[in-house]
């Protein structure tokens, strides 16, 4: 499923790399512990987190994550947005808590296990 479709269905706000939304999300991963994401996320995952530090962009690049969704109305730091822009990593935000958003993504057919 393309990120653009997820953005539309879940009413996400896109804050960076809006030119990269035709990328496919192959699955999803949710965690707020960077070391855990580095260990367990899969290439092509969309990542659900409440972390806003620029390090999330580095982890996304390292793991070839297709996009990051910040939940609970969290706003990324300015540095995070500019890094994400230059690395073409879409950062999206929602007011929904993680549990609700992940439920919607699951209903759209995205899975955490492949």
């Amino acid at each position: 499923m393309k990120i653009a479709e997820i953005v539309k269905s879940c009413k996400l706000q896109v804050l960076s790399a809006s030119g990269s939304l035709d990328r496919e999300a192959a699955g999803g991963y949710a965690s707020d512990l960077l070391s855990d994401v580095m260990a367990h996320s899969n290439k092509g995952d969309i990542w659900i987190t409440l972390q806003t530090h620029p390090n999330i962009v580095a982890v996304a690049v390292l793991k070839e994550i297709c996009g990051i969704v910040l939940v609970n109305g969290r706003k990324p730091e300015q540095d995070t947005v500019s890094k994400a822009e230059s690395e073409s990593i879409p950062i999206m935000v929602t007011d929904l808590p993680a549990f609700e958003l992940i439920g919607e993504l699951h209903a759209l057919g995205l899975r955490g296990k492949r």
Binding site: N55, A58, V59, L62, E87
Partner: peptide, 14 residues
């Protein structure tokens, strides 16, 4: 800066 590393094996140094 997470995108700065002296390693040449990968792009990020966390």
């Amino acid at each position: 800066d997470p995108f700065f590393t002296t390693k040449d094996t990968r792009r990020v140094g966390l």
